[in-house]
Design a binder for these strands. Structure first.
Lengths: 354, 354
DNA sequence: CGACTTTTTGTAATCGATTACATCTTGAGG
DNA sequence: CCTCAAGATGTAATCGATTACAAAAAGTCG
């Protein structure tokens, strides 16, 4: 045995079942897909043959004939982001119920990986796409939309009116974050960015700036550290923070991971949280509750977003009448936990107005 | 437009390209798959036609003809386990390089979800399977092996000599964990289990018991809390722990998530870690370093395990000569961090022998 | 019982590629 | 210039299901 052959030992086709049951392949097919069209007696006969032979239809052949694959592609910016896992759970629960499979696409924060998924769409290996990426994957001049497949954007809105979005109120939340800090007496604000080209980043920063302005402060009261939606960005921001003479006392991070990176790093340098610096994150991933002190953050309904996005996609794939492009905005909740408190200069004599 | 139709606007088949280039479909196919068999001039002609028409081969049709789908199923016990995300990264990097796609199967700790993935295998929608589940998925009397596909087990060994395993030295590590605790002077040991039926759980507990015995202690010095590989198990174990009169001072958890659950819960009850209780986890997930104090734990090379498993599967799928069943055991590293210290009764006067 | 409708079943085309085999080109060598 | 082998291309079968259409069977009713 030099070359191991990997195929099913018993390789039973629909024709075999038909012969076994003494009917035509058409009848077998009908029994399996639409039994009402077949007489009960024949149905039993065929089912018996199916059972005895252990026949399972070849989905590859079905796919070709029916022009569907019952597979959906989910493209994520990075697999190890806990937000992704939660959203994927919701997506999986919804799609699995309807018989769809999930193919994961991992960009790992590298745009060079996009072409592969464009090709997947173009080659008709999938019936629909869920994007968590904030933009439509491209391959040179071609992009995924050209495949003509239904696409739904989740988590990160896409600036394309033809694509339904399931997103949170990024801008409003960021604005609220600052307002919360202002109420606590902070006067100098730090912002830890996500990937600058990402739309959610743009939105969150816009909201942040709005909040600062609404509080009566100006651009000069802001320090902004650029990065990506990763832990390391928080670490880098913290290092920059520590080098400052005039440090912000209220910091908002565009995601929990970088918020945690920031907290851990400044703590290691002897900064006390929240006494010296208040930090607000964004996402509400599980870990944010495990650090010390637990992170004040906005909780996204990740699982529900996954389900909502999947439902919209299912509707589109089933060719439902498109009654406008759905644009779902999910609610956010500020989890007031341990990383925020009144600004240090006013720690005495001031009350927190929650 | 009552029913939106979702298919490619321009629907170009190989015959169209052939006509455009003035050749037969066979030639087009050859140019695309094995250009050396075609004259350079013809090749250029065809490629030009492909470019102009924007043709992409229909993978569904290719699949049927070639009897391969270039898709691999990865079955995970639970999506939100960070170990899974890391392993999946490794798997993805390896498989993507070879043109394979990944279909994720999420059992969400429920065996009822297995039949769906058995069906996937039986219906020839995939070319191979990576199991992180510790057992072969079943559907009544049928199981996934019947599909005759190459299967590789990762993270959790499978008790089936025909299936290659990529695992860590669970038993040895668990044993070392206890030995470490013994060296620190602990005399009473707690064990937080994973899913009892899981083989890695069995292995880790066996190693734990071995270590206890090797230290000169007996079964009576052990407290065992049963559960699953989840955070909540650690919480439950902690609650049981707090009710004990005679508490263990050295606790080993079969996974980091439950270790963290335990640490957080006992801390909330006023127990000091590591002064009152030492805790050792298993996995080395990112979060384990973010809690306070950082968790002492064994780090699994998750990404590398993913790659190794994928490579073995690739070999099997490419029909390489099977030179025995590979059984890779990856190294583990004990990360001595903050949750372990000398046993409380001996805190004075004893030195840590590391 | 026969005419006609309805239901059930079978035949064969089809989905879109790959590939065995046949046929036609090309070029080398005499 | 002719012969023959090697190389290039075309024809048509094939993968395994679904399904339009035709044909046959079963039922209905006067």
């Amino acid at each position: 045995m030099s070359r191991q052959r990997w195929h099913s030992v018993k390789d039973i086709r629909i024709a075999d079942v038909a012969r076994l049951a003494g009917v035509s392949t058409a009848t077998v097919s009908r029994v399996l897909s639409d039994p009402d069209k077949v007489r009960q007696k024949t149905c039993d006969l065929v089912m018996e043959a199916v059972r005895r032979s252990g026949y399972t239809p070849d989905r590859t052949a079905q796919n070709l004939r029916t022009r569907r694959t019952m597979n959906v592609l989910v493209v994520a910016p990075r697999l190890t982001n806990p937000v992704f896992a939660q959203v994927l759970r919701g997506v999986d629960d919804e799609l699995t119920r309807c018989g769809y499979g999930i193919i994961v696409g991992n960009l790992d924060n590298q745009r060079e990986r996009e072409p592969r998924y464009v090709a997947l769409a173009l080659s008709r290996q999938i019936d629909g796409v869920l994007l968590l990426t904030g933009h439509v994957p491209q391959d040179g001049d071609r992009n995924m939309k050209e495949a003509g497949l239904p696409i739904v954007a989740m988590c990160a809105a896409i600036d394309d009116p033809s694509i339904p979005n399931v997103v949170v109120q990024d801008r409003e939340a960021a604005r609220q974050a600052v307002e919360y800090l202002v109420r606590l007496g902070h006067r100098r604000f730090g912002y830890i960015s996500g990937t600058p080209t990402s739309i959610i980043e743009v939105e969150r920063y816009a909201g942040f700036v709005e909040g600062v302005a609404a509080g009566g402060f100006s651009q000069r009261d802001i320090v902004r550290w650029e990065g990506a939606f990763v832990f390391a960005t928080g670490v880098a921001a913290a290092e920059a923070f520590l080098r400052l003479k005039k440090r912000p006392t209220g910091v908002f991070a565009a995601c929990d991971e970088s918020a945690i990176g920031f907290v851990k790093t400044v703590q290691a340098a002897g900064i006390r949280i929240p006494q010296d610096v208040s930090v607000i994150g964004f996402d509400g991933i599980e870990v944010s509750d495990y650090i010390e002190p637990p992170l004040t953050t906005f909780r996204q309904p990740m699982y529900d977003m996954g389900r909502a996005g999947a439902q919209i996609l299912l509707n589109m794939m089933q060719g439902e009448a498109a009654t406008g492009i759905p644009n779902v905005r999910m609610p956010l909740r500020l989890l007031e936990r341990g990383t925020t408190s009144v600004a240090p200069s006013r720690a005495r004599g001031l009350k927190v107005v929650a």
